[in-house]
Computed example of a mutant assay.
Amino acid sequence: MSADFWAGYISGAAGILIGNPLDLIKVRLQASSQSVTSTPSNYASQFSSAGILIRGATAPILGYGALNALLFVTYNRTSDLLNTSERGLPPNLWTTWVAGAIGGLATWVISTPTELVKCRAQISSSPIASSNWGITKEILRTEGFRGLYFGGVVTALRDSIGYGFYFWSYELSTRLMMAKISDNFPKQQSTGQEAAKVLLCGGLAGVVTWASIFPLDVIKTRVQTQVLGRHAENTPLIQDVTPEPLQQRRLSATEIARNAYRNEGPNVFFRGLAVCSIRAFIVNAAQWAVYEWIMQELDPARRALKSEDIPP
């Protein structure tokens, strides 16, 4: 396996471990059809026990590690193909966005079932029903393998757009940060400054990414957490939407978006964005730091390049 595969896999798993508690709050805020005020007590009420902090984390740890590996490998290979700049020069920002979008689209095969299981586990009030493996078995039993890819279109659209901005914003902020450091410390760049740059740029990339696709993520969450056969009043995703006493069919992404806007207003598409932005900064700062560190350890050429840029 290549260095970027392992760097992507390990950094992805690390990001999930760090960010799962805040991701749990984000999903519950998105899935709820009722307005939730952003107070500490309301956020704290999302955790009824210590075990809930890692609810839904198993599937993402296994899946997102593989997803992140596939993302970085696809991005790096696509970027090499699209980049026409001379060797050693930074890539064009447009090709960076396109390579990121292609990388995000490639992750669809992993992200859709992973997100489906994770979201259903996180909104479940029953510890038994929230088992990742239990949810997966139930989906396979009732809907077959195809059921694991429910909501795949909106997930693919979210990932493609989001990861385009992810790599674009990281590359742009890195260039701006390097220019700032070079102006202020032309001969004193250190490993500490390099680490600070990676942490800050990684965190900013995460925030920009989620801000760009958050409405799509709200729709995706509501699409994927629909469960047939539940009473409408007990299913927050479809409250006051279907006239039937039992939900007879799942709503499409377009229907979900239209009904959410009609019943809850435009603010519904940004519910949970504050929590998500905090999580995105922390997780992606750590994730990029882990990725860059592992790449330097496993890729001799990259380590040599860094040693030329940073004096001892």
Rank of each mutant, 00 (worst) to 15 (best):
S2G: 04
S2Y: 07
A3V: 00
A3Q: 01
D4L: 02
D4M: 05
D4K: 04
D4A: 06
D4E: 14
F5D: 01
F5E: 01
F5N: 03
F5V: 07
A7I: 05
A7C: 07
Y9I: 11
Y9W: 15
S11P: 05
S11T: 09
S11H: 06
G12K: 06
A13M: 14
A13C: 12
A13Y: 06
A13H: 06
A14I: 15
I16M: 12
L17C: 14
L17T: 11
I18P: 08
I18W: 09
G19H: 09
G19S: 15
G19A: 15
N20Q: 15
N20K: 09
N20G: 01
P21M: 11
P21Q: 11
P21C: 11
L22M: 15
L22G: 02
D23F: 05
D23H: 13
L24G: 11
L24M: 09
I25T: 07
K26P: 00
V27G: 00
V27T: 10
R28H: 05
L29K: 13
Q30C: 13
A31Q: 09
S32I: 03
S32C: 04
S33Q: 06
S33I: 03
Q34L: 07
S35C: 02
T37K: 12
T37Q: 12
T37E: 13
S38C: 11
S38N: 14
T39L: 09
P40H: 12
P40F: 12
